[in-house]
Design a protein around this nucleic acid. Structure first.
Lengths: 352, 352
DNA sequence: CTGTTAGCGCCTTCAG
DNA sequence: CTGAAGGCGCTAACAG
């Protein structure tokens, strides 16, 4: 087979290259490049017209790979999440996409299932694909090897001019666009405390995630400050999924809580389902609250009280920040996103 | 500034290139390439070792862009959806990602908001980024200009060796991995008919989508076959969102249906919410059914009866098919996915 | 089995 | 203002 000519079948179809445009316009490739790449190098008006016209006529579209190879800028961003099908990530990714798309960048998206090796592989793949920036939406995996290897990859990447941004709890030191996980959790717990609850159960996230620790600390702090202390029986581990939340609620029930706080909405939704299934009323018998305020929170079996995080906007803002960083325009002051409580129908005073 | 050398600061950091490896191993670049790219060209065992060892030591990782430029294969796939934050798409994308990742391909994901220009822009961007395949998960926009321009872009793309696959109703002729939208809808409608409903309302999808027409036809056919015919008052237009479903339900209520079928789960969930909000019981007063069986369908205010589509598997299967196509291994027989009814708690006999 | 050469498509000095 | 030349990192004939 011939060299990579893009020729297929008998047609000899080929995407027009800069050379074709140059030839058609009767100028050199350099000149064509200058007008088509928006270079600041001066080009006479007539020539520019001819080139533009030829490009238009041929339907020329610059090859991004070639351009990237030559300029060391691919206009591409890699996004790491734990699972795109999780609404939390999906909503953030959507925001990132909007920002990136509006400024002519494309997004690579990869789910790591919070598996150390997968996540490292994803990072390496992003680097190999020469992305301009890497956005770690996924919270760091709480594993020394992960942090060590990820740091090595990311440090190298940055030394080369790459931009790294984190959007959740992460041990890696990089610009971070985050909201307050701990404060947010304290918000819900305090809300429940104010309603009069004393036996407040907590469904934690997966133990191998940094964000799990931070959110849990919010719960512990709030409980301790009120002099209630942390009853180990009232804390169970979940996995951020609906199913996991349901199972966790089942275990938690043995400790007879009057309220349950889940580390995310998915688990809260699962918990509500389980409670309802075993004949408990929510919030009549037990209140339930979540964290994130994914779109479905408001449409769960019982509309969920939760900590609102503007996921979509967070993504958009994150995207804009990354692009600004890439353009060498760091924002004067780094934005702060505050989490706020949204009280819906899943929480009320404890049964008397 | 110097040429694109990847040099930053004083360090002169640079990602090791094949040349560096070759030099370190004392061989020519071609030899290094041969062992590192898994070429079939013979290389002596000792040399191979030396190259491998040098690559390992330097932490060499081939530059995908360069490789892609040289081979005309980027190991990259472009995925077009209407909105990644919509669970329907998110779940499919997740499946595609799994398949792609497991075979060393990366995914570009873009949401078009079913906007003609955005969608065309996305397609062009994919081509410019030299993706190997384009997967149209999004149903076609029902607009002649869209179809014409999209076809032009895709035809060119394919003439160059690109693979195109559709995963929903699409006017563009390409391999399609789909399920039966019409049959699926007939399934739910028939289910309701069997329960004794006669005034069955329908919340259609956005009018500018092909899939909307197809699903709606399923409703119309089922209604007509039973001699009920289609009462225009019983059909309203939605937009595939929860909010839209709620609003549509409100309008639909004027026609006093005993059951409502929504063209997707999101709208069904919104409809249920609205019904409950205005004091109707579901399914006591009115039954509601959806389509897709997104994860949340089972956790809605009233667990939703719907048409199950194995979204995640669909994505995985689709990913595998595309990769096979790319490898020149078209499957002997094209898989068929059947939609099936899942009866949960949102449907029952009409009130007497 | 190994090296040399050319080229993928584009950008960017450097002359003119 | 324009063009020629070299290079980004890698692969693929083509000799030897």
């Amino acid at each position: 087979m011939s060299h990579a000519t893009g020729v297929v079948g008998e047609e000899g179809v080929k995407i027009p290259s800069l050379r074709d445009v140059a030839r058609a316009a009767g100028v050199s490739v350099s000149t064509a490049s200058r007008v088509l790449s928006g270079s600041s190098h001066p080009v006479s008006e007539p020539t520019r017209r001819r080139v533009l016209e030829a490009a238009e006529r041929l339907g020329f579209e610059p090859n991004r790979l070639a351009r990237a190879l030559a300029t060391a800028r691919s206009r591409t961003i890699g996004v790491v999440v734990h699972d795109v099908s999780d609404p939390y990530y999906a909503e953030i990714v959507r925001g990132l996409e909007d920002a990136a798309g509006s400024r002519d960048h494309a997004l690579f998206v990869s789910s790591s299932d919070r598996d150390v090796d997968k996540e490292l592989a994803v990072l390496r793949a992003f680097v190999a694909n020469q992305v301009d920036a890497i956005v770690l939406v996924a919270s760091a995996i709480d594993d020394p090897r992960y942090l060590a290897e990820a740091s090595a990859i990311l440090d190298r990447f940055r030394a080369l001019g790459g931009v790294v941004m984190t959007m959740s709890e992460h041990g890696y030191a990089a610009p971070r666009l985050g909201y307050e996980n701990r404060a947010g959790t304290r918000l819900v717990v305090t809300h429940l405390l104010d309603l009069g609850h004393r036996r407040i159960g907590y469904i934690a996230g997966p133990p191998d995630l940094l964000v799990t620790r931070v959110r849990q600390r919010g719960y512990e702090e709030a409980m301790t400050e009120l002099g209630l202390g942390v009853d180990p029986e009232l804390v169970v581990t979940g996995d951020f999924t609906i199913e996991g939340g349901a199972r966790a609620a089942e275990r938690l029930l043995r400790a007879e809580p009057t309220a349950i706080v889940a580390a995310n909405d998915m688990m809260a939704i699962g918990a509500i389902r389980h409670l309802l299934d075993v004949g408990k009323r929510v919030p009549g018998d037990v209140s339930v609250a979540g964290f994130d305020d994914i779109e479905f929170a408001a449409y769960a079996a019982v509309p969920l009280t939760t900590v609102h995080v503007p996921l979509g906007e967070l993504g958009q803002l994150g995207g804009r920040l990354v692009l600004d960083l890439l353009d060498g325009n760091p924002p004067e002051e780094w934005p702060r996103i505050d989490a706020r409580l949204v009280v819906r129908e899943s929480t009320s005073a404890p049964p008397t």
